[in-house]
Design a protein around this nucleic acid. Structure first.
Lengths: 242, 242
DNA sequence: AAGTGGTCTAGACCACCAC
DNA sequence: TGGTGGTCTAGACCACTTG
């Protein structure tokens, strides 16, 4: 029950455990997607308890160096995917060009009505018809984001009928001759909470990046509003202007 | 010592505590920058221990709803600052226009040499002369970011002599006739670690957003490379293209 | 000096996953 | 079925900040 004196200088124990693990990762002893030893084993080998070990692991997770998968354990994070949200965009092409393997799952397609918050974001009127598409996307078998896409059925009649497990941007261009323009992007870091956390198979509270994008066509007609929930350690945003 | 049965359904206790606090914040019972009751008081009033209470607080912190200040307590987060990193930029003007109060402190100005990682980012050669400027910026008295700015002394001779507690962009325009162009922006969420965490008065491991920006002038000459470390709950990025 | 958050112990039971 | 992470208890001492 007694808390021990701090031993080595003033650095907290959990940060010293963190440093040791970080060094092993940097030295390449633990390659990307390798599983770490179990929390109990780590605790014992560092002469401490699980609580302190978990503090160290949480640090590394916050830095984006490791991630957890269900209750299977802790794994070394692979490099971040480079992502430019201002470009017309094929997730699949982008992932492939970085030597990784993409996958997309359509979770849901619904015809619904514009809610007040969405009216704010899109300029549509509350109650207007809208098509909602929900997808999950993976890189090398790990889910990295879920997205809700709101499509304007006036500009995209019959959009519900298509296969959404491919590039939406290509679909819009080929079937509707839409060249997306005038993108307005908003993003901020936040924790992933429940519908998204569950879809990604992570605990509520896992760090994420929330990205939204509104696009219209060359005539200024609203085409789509996209809302993406990324795991925070999986991407690096890159934008070029002028 | 015994762990108790879960009582109310399957929602973990720390998430129920989180929900209660979140409701109080949303209902306006706890205004922005208000201090929460102490961890011990919260623990007792929810019939649990500090460890569990801290889990709940960490959740709210990850969501950007509360923040901590030194060892003074937990506070309700004010609204995020809207920030467009692609624009020529006066922090002061931007903060003021959002009804908040800005402050800037220059922490350090050094003439130094380009290191390998910086050569990569800027296109300069390793060993080239460079001026390094380090600043901390506050909103309503709370530090929200620290930044390292690397300035090209060839394009900006005598730059060290100026006062950096004002807008750098305005300085460049007025004194050097620089119109910044060709910005390349990169950003990703990550934890803030030591020099930055300390400068911001937060614990190592606090969630942050890392933003870099490289700019050149109208002739393509490299002007500055900027590296910003933001507290994750303090900003919302907004970009408009085309 | 009193109170705050920061760190830490040494256990426990549970839910879920892989074998 | 055994091992994993997820949750939780009931304490303790420490470092720092505040009156």
């Amino acid at each position: 029950m007694e808390a021990r004196a701090n031993g080595e200088g003033s650095t907290p124990l959990y940060l010293r455990v963190r440093d040791q693990l970080a060094n092993q990762i940097e030295a390449g002893l633990l390659a990307a997607n390798t599983r770490l030893p179990s929390e109990r084993v780590l605790a014992e080998s560092h002469g401490t308890t699980r609580v302190t070990t978990r503090l160290a692991l949480a640090q590394l997770e916050a830095e984006g160096r490791i991630y957890r998968s269900n209750r299977r354990g802790w794994f070394v994070s692979p490099p971040r995917l480079v992502y430019n949200p201002t470009q017309d965009y094929s997730f699949s092409d982008n992932v492939t060009s970085q030597g990784r393997t993409p996958a997309t799952e359509t979770l849901e397609v619904t015809a619904t009505e514009v809610a007040p918050w969405l009216a704010n974001k899109t300029g549509l009127a509350v109650g207007d018809a809208i098509v909602r598409l929900r997808r999950r996307r993976q890189v090398d078998g790990r889910p990295v984001l879920v997205e809700n896409i709101y499509l304007n059925p006036k500009r995209l009649p019959g959009i519900e009928q298509y296969d959404f497990n491919r590039s939406l941007w290509k679909l819009l261009r080929e079937k509707y001759s839409v060249e997306l323009q005038g993108k307005r992007i908003e993003m901020f870091p936040t924790a992933l909470v429940d519908p998204q956390a569950e879809a990604l198979g992570v605990n509520a509270g896992t760090a994420g990046l929330y990205v939204t994008r509104r696009s219209h066509d060359a005539d200024g007609v609203f085409v789509e509003f996209d809302e993406e929930f990324w795991l925070h350690d999986t991407l690096s945003i890159q934008v070029e202007v002028q």
